[in-house]
Nucleic acid binder design. Structure first.
Length: 571
DNA sequence: GATGTCTGCCCC
DNA sequence: ATTCTGC
DNA sequence: GCAGAATGGGCAGACATC
């Protein structure tokens, strides 16, 4: 991180100015207005302030590959309550009406008449002060670190002189945004501020993965700097994303009748960076997971290339070398302790599927088929994900069926000519997964939502029937799938059948039945039923079904066993 | 050592 | 995952 | 029609507390 010691007096950017800007943004919904507002704000900032301000405005503190502060709602709110002599119940009351922790904190600060705010001794917080403050919090680790983090955040809050600073200190700490201005619009604001082509800013952002750095390059080096931007080893590139296809045939058609089909394994996506013997592995969201995966590091070290960036998928294997449940992989994935003991207990395998950089050359603009060729020249076939390139639907169908039979999730169809486009747009990769069966479940409780859903019961507790004890047992919570209109309706209905309210949770009579889609049944250490749905989403409200007709725990158990069976039989 | 709380982010 | 909204 | 933004779940691991 580049921070220069001193800048000319009037140029120093105060934190409160960023806060006020964010408040303005929050009040408008027009994207173009937001962009010009931000553009004007960042246009004349000194470059170090620019880098920080750009991140702060989109609600980020650090580049994505750096560790987070390690404080969440509980710790942060505890600090707010203490600094402003409030109480949990008071905070909770304010929060319930807004659904926004930052806003609630500001109200608490306002309520006590800003006495600690006015006694702040060290003058206004600059954005650099705020950055340094959070940096110290992030650095604390190990025993006693939680107390230390809380003490440091406490100190930061004490230096706020205005309630609005409290609001955004809390939002930054928690990663709350909710002002409708995020990465995509910031790219446009940077382009506008420094009078540069949007596409170049966007491309540089893809490669740096950090808007602060992108803004710095834009201001200091302009068009040429953006154009010259290459992949930086050990700074993860944003992953290219896949879109869902309806089925195999439509995917093949959409990609022009001929495509590459890669097996989609149920693992975790990684980006691997290598320079001679130095290797780093990043998760999909740019977390450094190198220390958790020593055997993967070894595989990469042996790759015959001086420097390279690969994309791949890591999965766990069962004792017979077949794909293991995702939950097993997660025991390894971000583990810090006893890693070496787990290496033999839960073996992992890395499958490569793309290469973005090789010996100094950035490859993302080359077509898929060419990157594939380069990949095959660098790593051996047995560590590359199984692939079929075909224009024949029947062949692809057979391959798909085999993938499912082997216990994999499905296929990814890829456009043979497409470059690697990090980020969201230009999706030339299509996910093909079987349509899952749905279950009918009954709602037995619901929770109030956050943000604009604060007044609605948007989070439903879903239960299956257990005939053995004649009870409805929770197998998951679900918030997604309903339209706003349906949410309003269901909130009203739930209140009619409410039994009791505890905090944010409203318990209701088992009356309302919903049809729920899901990806998998998992073992749950959390629910009494011992089962939980993976990725539940509501398909529709079943007015026509009575609670007695919902699916049973036994049905879920059966689905769970079938999943296991598929993995065991896999050959 | 066992249990509980909190946090962040794998997969959607 | 889903839905809503600006453009 | 599209991209961007906002909504949220279950879970394992790290730290705190008994």
């Amino acid at each position: 991180m580049l921070i220069l010691p001193i800048v000319g007096g009037s140029l120093i950017m105060l934190f409160v100015d960023v806060c006020r800007l964010c408040d303005e943004i929050e009040a408008i919904s027009s994207r173009s207005s937001m962009i010009s507002l931000v553009s004007n704000f960042i246009k004349n900032l000194e470059v170090n302030d620019l880098e920080l301000a750009v991140r702060f405005i989109i609600g980020e503190l650090f580049p994505p590959w750096e560790p987070e502060i390690g404080l969440g709602a509980s710790g942060v709110i505890g600090c707010v309550i203490k600094v402003f002599s409030s109480s949990k119940s008071e905070f909770f009351k304010v929060f319930k009406s807004t659904g926004d922790l930052g806003l609630a904190s500001m109200r608490i600060a306002e309520k006590i008449g800003c006495i600690p705010l006015l006694t702040a001794s060290e003058g206004d917080l600059t954005i650099k002060d705020v950055y340094e403050g959070f940096k110290s919090i992030a650095r604390a680790s190990g025993e006693g670190s939680r107390r230390k983090k809380i003490r440091l955040f406490h100190g930061l809050l004490l230096r706020a002189r205005r309630p609005v600073e409290v609001k955004y200190l809390v939002k930054l700490a928690l990663g709350e945004r909710r002002h409708g201005f995020s990465e995509g619009l910031m790219e446009e604001a940077i382009a506008d501020a420094f009078n540069l082509p949007y596409e170049l800013v966007r491309r540089a952002h893809m490669l740096t993965s950090d808007l602060g750095l992108t803004a710095r390059i834009a201001k200091l080096k302009g068009v040429e700097g953006l154009r010259r931007q290459r992949i930086v080893l050990f700074h993860p590139v944003k992953p290219m994303l896949a879109e869902k296809a309806n089925d195999l045939l439509s995917a093949l058609r959409e990609l022009g009748g001929r495509a590459s089909f890669e097996i989609k394994v149920d693992g975790a996506r990684v980006q691997v960076h290598k320079l001679n013997d130095k290797v780093k592995i990043f998760s999909r969201r740019a977390t450094d997971v190198t220390t958790s995966l020593p055997e993967v590091v070894e595989v990469v070290k042996r790759v015959a290339a001086e420097s390279a960036v690969f994309e791949g998928e890591v999965i766990a294997l069962t004792s017979n070398g077949k794909p293991a449940p995702f939950q097993l992989l997660m025991r390894r994935f971000r583990r810090q302790r006893s890693v070496s003991e787990l290496v033999s207990k839960i073996p992992l395998k890395l499958y490569f599927f793309d290469i973005l950089y090789l010996n100094g050359e950035t490859l993302i603009d080359k077509p898929y088929i060419e990157r594939r060729k380069i990949l095959r020249s660098v790593v051996s076939e047995d560590v590359i994900i199984e692939t079929l390139i075909t224009s024949k639907y029947e062949e692809a169908q057979t391959f798909y069926e085999k993938a499912l039979k082997d216990g994999h999730e499905g296929l990814i169809a890829k456009d043979l000519e497409s470059p690697y486009t990090p980020g969201v747009r230009g999706k030339k990769w299509l996910k093909i997964k079987p349509v899952f069966n749905t279950l009918d479940l009954v709602v037995i409780a619901a929770e109030y939502g956050h943000g604009y859903r604060a007044s609605m019961l948007s989070d439903l507790y879903l239960a299956a029937y257990n005939p053995e004890n004649n009870e409805f047992e929770v197998v998951g919570k679900c918030f997604t799938g309903l339209t706003d209109e349906e949410l309003i309706w269901i909130t009203k209905r739930l209140k009619e059948v409410a039994i009791k309210e505890e905090g944010r949770v409203v318990y209701v009579e088992p009356k309302i039945v919903v049809e729920v889609a899901f990806d998998e049944v998992q073992k749950s250490p959390h629910y009494k039923s011992g089962l939980a749905l993976r990725f539940p989403r509501i398909i529709r409200i079943r007015d026509d079904k009575s609670p007695l007709e919902v699916d049973t725990i036994q049905t879920l158990s059966k689905i769970f066993e079938e999943q296991r069976g598929r993995r065991k039989e896999a050959t």
